[in-house]
């Protein structure tokens, strides 16, 4: 018999024992090949889902503003989507769009709709009555009031929705890796089938860090786009 065969040759370097749950050497050795690219994929998966979800939700909310039948309908529809178990949702579209990014994005985007639509519509509806009355009296058309007064004043509410939606999508996107091998879910799913924990722990920690950083960025963005909310007498 020669040398004993390495149990996990791919994932563990010579310095990493399988029993070590967090081996820094593995992380530095595999950053550019596994973790880095997965993180970048995770970011754009999230970005696409939130941006597309936001566009659909804001458009739907603007349309729904003066059409209660549509507001009720879209709310029911997006609530229904929200209640579907995520794994089932991803798999549902596989026969149509395959094991692809598109399948993932359909699922993730659907989950943002309820949050973003409801927050946008609430924002549009909770504008100070006096501002709307003044706008009407001054001769702004209903369209101008909607786009120039209500929509900007809904921004704090919309951004609050984006915060929750972004963090939710970051978390759900790890599960999406079971459908298409993309994002930080991929190293997690890969490592589940091995005895080596470092990869799983590292990817999970990266996901959490991404969620925290994203939250801070969205708060910063809100700060930038709603200057009137932070003024003082």
């Amino acid at each position: 018999m020669g040398e004993p065969t390495q149990v996990i040759p791919v994932f563990s370097g010579p310095q990493c024992a399988p029993s070590n749950p967090f081996c820094w050497d593995w992380i530095t050795a595999n950053w550019s090949s596994i973790l880095g690219p997965s993180l970048v994929q995770h970011i754009y998966i999230t970005l696409i889902a939130v941006v597309v979800g936001l566009v659909i939700s804001v458009a739907a909310a603007l349309f729904a503003f003066s059409r209660n039948w549509f507001a009720g309908g879209f709310l029911a529809f997006s609530t229904f989507l929200y209640t579907i178990p995520s794994l089932a949702f991803f798999l549902m579209f596989v026969p149509i769009t395959g094991l692809s990014l598109t399948t993932i994005e359909i699922g993730l985007t659907s989950y943002t709709l309820l949050l973003l639509f409801r927050n946008t519509l609430t924002g549009l509806r909770t504008v100070p009555r006096s501002a709307v009355e003044a706008a009407e009296g001054m001769g702004l058309t209903p369209q101008q009031i909607l786009f120039r007064i209500r929509l900007p004043l809904a921004l704090p509410s919309i951004m609050a929705g984006v915060r929750i939606a972004a963090v939710t999508v970051i978390s759900l996107a790890t599960i999406a890796a079971s459908v298409a091998p993309l994002g930080l879910g991929k190293p997690i799913f890969d490592a589940i089938h091995t005895l080596f924990d470092t990869e799983l722990v590292a990817a999970a920690l990266l996901t959490i860090a991404l969620a925290l950083v994203t939250d801070v960025i969205v708060v910063g963005l809100q700060y930038l786009v709603t200057p009137w909310t932070r003024v003082r007498r």
Binding site: R129, S130, A131, A134, M138, G139, L140, T141, I149
Partner: peptide, 30 residues
Amino acid sequence: VTTLRRDIGYVIQQVGLFPHMTIAGNIAVI
């Protein structure tokens, strides 16, 4: 009705300034 209203100054008790616009922005709307 829009043309009519733009030719009539309108002032209400609750003022109804647009909170997201500066003072200059409010004056410049019409």
